[in-house]
């Protein structure tokens, strides 16, 4: 019974997050640029930099499919492997059905400890929603997905930029990818570069490579 309640609460809060995302998507981000103010060529250049970020293990490893098996890329290694200790995010995507992610990935805004201690964030650790699969996908597949409102939390281009800023305001997963603690590799560039690139890509009409 308690398990059912926990899962129901988790799914309910996921819906709230989705609804919040829908609302945010309708808000204009101060960082977003007017549609059409950036050329398609510049937009594709921006996408190349975005792709290098979203396919980086630091960002892709928790964007997994419905099996909800998080991926590890241990510090000093480039090959991915499944998360140890039988950890599964479950339908809740936060491990509520078995071991909550926050058992080890404790919610904290303090700087990340050095590898191999687990990473932390200012919001409860979780897998990305199941619609947002990045791990194992090509850059062009992720590009198509990112501009599809059915697979990006109902966000338009400005909403995606706002999502980044909102996550940063919570010391969430996205900006902390660039501050993963000693021994871990961050994605290329900086968080600010990524926000700027998302704005450029959005203003160019979200072009994707062929």
């Amino acid at each position: 019974m308690r398990k059912t309640i926990l899962i129901a609460l988790t799914l309910a809060s996921s819906s709230i997050v989705t609804l919040t995302g829908l609302v945010l998507a309708k808000e204009e981000s101060k960082d977003a640029l007017p549609l059409g103010s950036i050329s398609r060529a510049e937009g594709l250049e921006a996408w190349k930099r975005i792709e290098a970020v979203v396919t980086h293990p630091r960002c892709a490893n928790c964007h997994v499919d419905a099996r909800a098996i998080p991926i590890w890329t241990p510090a000093g290694e480039s090959k991915s492997r499944i998360h140890g200790m039988n950890i599964r995010g479950g339908e809740s995507r936060i491990g509520a059905e078995t071991v909550p992610c926050s058992t080890c990935h404790v919610t904290s805004k303090l700087p990340n400890p050095p590898a191999p201690a687990p990473l932390h964030a200012g919001i409860d650790w979780q897998l990305a929603p199941v619609e947002f699969i990045w791990f194992g996908k090509s850059g062009s597949e992720i590009c198509a997905q990112l501009k599809d409102s059915k697979r990006n939390g109902g966000r338009d281009a400005a909403g995606l930029v706002e999502h980044l800023k909102h996550d940063a305001s919570l010391s969430g997963f996205i900006p902390r990818a660039w501050a993963p603690g000693t021994g871990r590799t961050p994605p290329p560039g900086t968080f600010e570069d990524h926000v700027r690139d998302m704005a450029l890509w959005g203003a160019a009409g979200q072009p994707c490579p062929d």
């Binding site: 058992t103 990935h105 404790v106 904290s108 805004k109 303090l110 932390h120």
Partner: peptide, 18 residues
């Protein structure tokens, strides 16, 4: 492992400020 507000948590990872 200890309980924090009823949930099992690795106390080596929970820092005092949190």
């Amino acid at each position: 492992t200890v309980q924090i507000d009823g949930a099992a948590v690795r106390s080596c990872q929970a820092r005092m400020a949190d």
